[in-house]
Each structure stands twice: as C-alpha cells, then as structure tokens.
Design a protein around this nucleic acid. Structure first.
Lengths: 141, 141
DNA sequence: CTAAAATTTAGAACTATTCTAAACTACTTG
DNA sequence: CAAGTAGTTTAGAATAGTTCTAAATTTTAG
C-alpha cells in the first residue's frame, strides 16, 4: 500500500521498462510512453494522445495509439476506465484509487485511496474473486 | 431510504405514470414501459430492448427505443450506467444501490445500498455538489 | 547479416448512438 | 368532434470511437 510516486522517467527507464514487460521498445511505443508518463498522472483518451503525438511531431497512426494503449494496459502500465459511455480513458495512475467525475465537463480527477473508506463490502458470489472496486463520485459541475 | 418495491405495474399505472411525468403515453412508450417494468429490476441495453420488442411483436424503431430510454431516464424512470465502454445499460432500479460487474460475461448485478458502507468520502471541490456515488465491484468470472 | 516474429499502418469495417426532416399522432380548443 | 399544433415516431444518413485486415516495416535472435 505504498504511495506510488509519479516521477518523470528517464529515457532509458522507459526503454528498459518496455523491454522488461515484454514489449519491444519501438520508436512509436517509446515516444508514446514518454508522452504518457512525462507529466504526472492523468487520464487520456486515445484521441487525446493522438493529438498530443501529432502536436509533438511524433508520426504515429491512430491504430498504433490504440494498440499501444491496450498493450500498456495489459502489462499494467495503464489502467482503463470508462465512466461516461463515450470513450475509454486511460489512467496513468495504476495504484488503487478512485475518481471524481465532472458530469458537465466530462473530466476525471483522482481521489486518493485513503480518502474513501469502504467499511463493508458484500460477499462476492461464490467461486468468484474481486478484480477491483471502482468508486466514482459524480459531480454536478 | 425506504426499500423500493418492484411490483408489476398495471396497464393503467403505466399510462398514468407517463402522463404524470409529462410524457405522452404513446403506443410505443406504453409498450416499452410494459416490457421494461414487467419483470422486476434489470439492466437492459438499447439493443436488448429492441430485440425484446421485436420478439413481442411490438413494432418500434431503434431510434424510438433510444428516445424512450433517454426520456425515461430524464424523468427518473430509469437510470443510465456505463461501466464497460461498450454501451450503456439502463437500470430499472432507480433507488440508491451499487453493482457487481462480471468482467467476462459483461453482466451487471445489483448490490443493495445496505450491503456497502462507505464510511468517509472526500470533500467535494468547493462550489460543487455530488450527483451520485457509484460503486462497481468488478468480478473475475 | 538474415530469418522469424513482432509491430505498424492505411483504410475498411463495425458498433453504438445521434441526427434529420418528413410523416404521423395525441392533446387542446372552439 | 374538427382542426390546429405541439409532441412523437421513423428510416436512413451521419457520427464517434474502436477494431480489423493484410501488407509493409522494424526489431531481435542466431
């Protein structure tokens, strides 16, 4: 339950990390990982990242954006979440935590795990296991 | 915080209810409301309802299904929720409660409000108000 | 360096949903 | 009840987000 730091990873950290988890450190993945992890935790959509990449002169196709986001998610570098049915957000914070969701502006904001205490959960159906618990506090903004 | 009963509403209940909330009790809305509220609480997608309607020889277009679901939701007869980014589910249970989400089968199951106790919530950003709190327990099935 | 395996890509395809504008229906008023 | 009008329905086009396909390219192991 240690607090996860979100430090700016160095170039070689990223490369090494990709290699370690079994993803080839291609030009595209390196560039995207740099974009994603350079600025502290955030919630990006595929389209967001695509635009950011274009803005940074990173030549990458939308299909690759999706591939990378899914690959990163599968390997635990990102966490996918969808709260408003129009699109998936990828959260660079993969530690346990929850979210505020601003209904009007459709923005997400992290809530530290410590700021929500769930004192009792129902027993899960037998033979099953909890994958995770998501709390979303919807805000009228 | 009274427990909400889910009784099978009579024909005229439905008609009256629609009229009361300001929706004209058209043939289509009446038929769809009957389908939706005839069987106790459940979680339906637009496509689900469309198929059910067809199966019941109710002649209604998909556009109307969407219109009706949104109108019903806006009037508090249904509650929309989207947890898995592929589509919106409409919950006939509009009382406070939470959900299990079976990741593999993509099914939702209600959790009674009393079965989850949240002992502390973070303060909301100033000037804002909580619209609702959704807890989703994701289950590996 | 070379072959095999993984990755990238453009564009087509797909799914869920919304839009459009015309046809239709319910409610109100006289 | 006739008629007007406001609300509703509809088919189909349009849109948004995402996945698929198959070919071209890049990475890695040997």
């Amino acid at each position: 339950m240690a607090k996860q730091k979100s430090e700016i990873p160095s170039e070689s950290d990223v490369l090494e990390r990709l290699r370690t988890i079994g993803l080839r450190p291609t030009r595209q993945r390196l560039a995207l990982a740099r974009l994603l992890f350079a600025k502290g935790h955030r919630h990006v959509s595929a389209e967001d990242l695509f635009k950011e990449a274009r803005a940074s002169d990173i030549d990458v196709s939308l299909a690759t954006i999706y591939n990378a986001l899914h690959d990163f998610t599968a390997k635990g570098l990102l966490r996918a979440l969808s709260v408003d049915s129009m699109g998936t957000y990828f959260d660079t914070n993969t530690s346990d935590h929850h979210h505020f969701f601003y209904e009007r502006s459709r923005r997400l904001e992290d809530i530290a795990n410590d700021d929500i205490h769930i004192s009792s959960l129902p027993r899960t159906p037998k033979g099953t296991e909890i994958s995770r618990v998501d709390v979303v506090i919807r805000i009228k903004d």
